[in-house]
Amino acid sequence: MLARGDKKRALLALRRKKYQESLLAKTDAQLEQLEKLTTNVEFALIQKDVVFGLQQGTNVLQEIHREMGGLAHIEKLMGETAEAIAYQNEVSEMLGGSMSNADEDEVEDELSALEAEMAISLPSAQAILPNVPDTQPLVTHDPMIETRTEELETERRQLVPA
């Protein structure tokens, strides 16, 4: 426009160019703000998911702690366990390490005396058992006898240790 000598139109074109450049700068700034906002929203959604996960984890832990009975129950259980271990150690010490040779000899003598006493009090098996019959027994079917035989067998099993 300047080459034609139209200064007003050249000035108008420059103003329009300047306006559009400022409009483009404002639009770029708005787009940049929009990108920042989008990034912030995405980050906030991730934080929300993290907080939700933490909340769920906390709820599960609290449920597990309720099932375990709380600290008082755990302390009681630990105390009982310690007492049981101490008792077992005491029993092990009494049975294992603290018996002298004289005590061991006395225990063996007592065992020998008990074995001798058992041999005297039990009659020989040969004297109790009758002779085996040579003939086949007669088979009769009597429900009363079968029931009584089963009862006696059950009683015998209860009296005789396995």
Rank of each mutant, 00 (worst) to 15 (best):
V160A: 05
V107D: 05
E35L: 08
F43Y: 14
M78V: 14
G96M: 01
E146F: 02
G70Q: 01
A119C: 03
E21W: 01
P143N: 03
L14W: 04
S92Y: 03
L11T: 02
E67M: 10
E42V: 05
F43T: 15
V139A: 10
K17D: 08
E104M: 15
R66E: 08
G97N: 04
E90G: 06
E155S: 11
E63V: 09
K8D: 01
V139I: 13
L31R: 13
G96H: 01
A162W: 10
S98M: 07
Q62F: 05
E90S: 12
A84Y: 01
Q33I: 03
A84S: 11
L31C: 06
K8A: 07
T81D: 07
E32G: 05
M118I: 14
P143C: 02
L31G: 03
V60W: 02
V91H: 02
A10H: 00
L61Y: 11
P143I: 00
N59I: 07
H65M: 11
Q33N: 14
A10S: 02
M144S: 14
Q33E: 09
Q158T: 13
Q20P: 00
M94F: 05
N59L: 12
T147Y: 03
E155M: 13
S100K: 01
E83A: 13
E153C: 03
D6V: 03
